[in-house]
């Protein structure tokens, strides 16, 4: 603190309890105000593979798969947009199925096979879908992009596997990767930059769909 008076501990704060003076002392000498606590929370071991690599972790059971990837394994390609299943930025593949990794606990994935964007491709070895996204500018800020790409890869497989969608005309006929099918199925991945039309072009190219 350089005493400019613009950032001072208020009197009210001092009166409110002991915390302010503790904070003040900390600010002056930049020492931790509390000793580190050992967590008195149960910890669970969990093992799964991520992008083919076996991983074993000891985790607070509250840790989501998303935070496990981002914070514990430092695989930050998977994004957190909402943490509540409302955006799709956290999409990863588990045993080949795309899921929102924010709404799943890591401990629920014992033995699972997790694929993240880092496992889809790398800057030097782009997956066809990643290349198509670059070519068609299927992104802007890039924050929703890993989730979009993981979803896009899975969507083409879902269509192949005959999983119906809201726009499937005939439930019993063979699913085809039309533009409308892809748009509907990608709708769990929000892009506020609004790259949808370009993502659609990128996917159409990979799926070999004309226009």
């Amino acid at each position: 603190m350089n005493g400019s008076g613009k950032w001072r501990v208020s009197r009210r704060g001092v009166l409110a309890g002991g915390s302010a003076s503790a904070a003040m002392a900390t600010m002056l000498d930049a020492q931790p105000s509390h000793p580190r606590r050992q967590a008195d929370i149960p910890v669970y071991d969990v093992s799964f593979t991520v992008n083919g690599e076996p991983r074993t972790l000891s985790l607070d059971p509250r840790t989501t798969l998303l935070d496990t990837l981002r914070e514990h394994l430092q695989l930050t390609g998977t994004k957190k947009g909402c943490d509540h299943g409302q955006c799709g930025a956290c999409t990863v593949l588990v045993d080949g199925f795309r899921i929102n990794s924010c709404l799943s606990l890591a401990v629920m994935h014992e033995g699972d096979r997790v694929t993240t964007i880092e496992g889809v491709g790398s800057p030097d070895h782009l997956h066809a879908m990643q290349r198509a996204f670059v070519q068609h500018d299927g992104f802007q800020c890039g924050y929703c992009t890993p989730g979009q790409i993981c979803s896009a890869v899975a969507v083409l497989k879902e269509i192949e596997a005959g999983v119906p969608s809201h726009v499937t005309e005939d439930l019993t006929a063979t699913c085809v990767p039309s533009r409308a099918e892809m748009r509907e199925r990608m709708s769990g991945n929000i892009c506020r930059c609004g790259a949808y039309a370009n993502i659609s072009d990128a996917m159409a190219e990979v799926a070999g769909v004309n226009v």
Binding site: R98, N100, S151, L171, G188
Partner: peptide, 27 residues
């Protein structure tokens, strides 16, 4: 996606895919 549901209980199949998102429905 079950063929029997799609064939005989189409309304159920349709209701499900009208909900949430592909990712959520997988879980």
């Amino acid at each position: 996606a079950d063929p029997r549901i799609k064939r005989d209980y189409g309304v159920l199949s349709r209701a499900i895919v009208a909900g949430a998102s592909g990712q959520l429905r997988n879980k």
